[in-house]
Design a protein around this nucleic acid. Structure first.
Lengths: 187, 187
DNA sequence: TATTCTTTGTGATGTTTGTCACACCATGAT
DNA sequence: ATCATGGTGTGACAAACATCACAAAGAATA
């Protein structure tokens, strides 16, 4: 089960068996069913999640109760309401399953203990944070430079599997267009 | 001159004089005039920059030679084409001065030496990377939830000084709307 | 002073996208 | 089998926004 995690981490740093045992001791495994919430807006955020299998969405609900998808997370992705997680404040976003999902859970104490106990892990999280920053900036750029059709095509090219796994309504919400407009793009 | 840097870093970690001397030794100061380029698209990216004074913009130029502003950076901000900087690849974006600007320059070797030589600095950069990720995600959210007027008002509320320092054409490019549309929002 | 460049506003018009309404189909629950 | 539910496509119309064109005011420069 946690082989995924080791393989994932070792793409960036190498670990001895003892070191991985130490890493592993900070995580607990949890399972969630489709539609279940890992994080609920307004509630405290106890964990950062590493997705073992399944698919989840990070969403923000606006004043008109309209839902906007800030991010998807699938196998080998880390996700949380990071702002709330690091600051210890209440969630402004929710994290919900699109499929039955298995995750590894890491608390903030666990995160800090990992970083201070095994310095390589701080380096690992630094790399991950930088990658997250760069990816988010690329998405900003797609809003600046591209219309709905182009953003849709870029998304499909980059993550073809989403097309199979996620209803188009959800893709529309991620792309920032209405369901109807997305439906009309195919032609 | 580098007092800014020390104060900036000590908002997150504390440093002895010796430690700060070590940090300081990794930076060189450079001055650029308005319109000058710190990074040119297609060229190697030698540095990450810490802005001492002035104002710069991170831009991407699309196929139609239209310029899009990915980020502004003013006093106490870090900026670069991070993807190219960390990977050692050629820049896909440019970094250009909107005002006469003084920056501290850090090479990739310097960055790595800083992180390995003084562990607190790795922690510092981790915090900064996380903050960058969260800020970028907030901007994505503004594209998903808000129209041009709302994004404009949010920007002015958050960074009122930009309104004084930057022509509206540039603000429009940052917000992802045309100059004309922005001009008509005021009413 | 004369002149060029930058910045900004604004009208006219077309394109893109959102919203509302309705229909159809598949799926799973009772 | 029947019923609800969620996902999808599409027509009609309205709103938001882009583009093109032109004008005017201010800043920079010769």
């Amino acid at each position: 089960m946690q082989a995924n995690l080791r393989e994932h981490i070792e793409k960036i740093i190498s670990l001895t068996d003892d070191e991985f045992a130490f890493v592993q001791s900070h995580f607990i495994t949890k399972q969630f069913s489709r539609h279940e919430f890992l994080i609920t807006s307004g509630q405290p955020v106890k964990h950062t999640y590493f997705v073992i299998s399944g698919l989840i969405k990070l969403i923000h609900t606006d004043d008109n109760a309209k839902e906007h998808i800030v991010a998807f997370a699938m196998e080998d992705w880390w996700e949380s309401d990071f702002q709330a997680f690091y600051k210890g404040t209440k969630a402004t976003m929710s994290l919900q399953c699109l499929e039955d999902t298995t995750v590894l859970c890491l608390t903030l104490d666990g995160y800090n203990s990992l970083c201070s106990g095994l310095n390589k892990m701080e380096y690992f999280f630094l790399k991950k944070a930088n990658a997250g920053h760069i990816a988010a900036q690329q998405r900003i750029l797609s809003f600046l430079t591209s219309n709905a059709r182009e953003r849709y095509e870029m998304l499909l090219k980059r993550y073809p599997s989403l097309f199979q796994r996620v209803p188009k309504t959800q893709l529309a919400s991620y792309l920032g267009v209405s369901r109807e407009t997305l439906s009309r793009l195919s032609t």
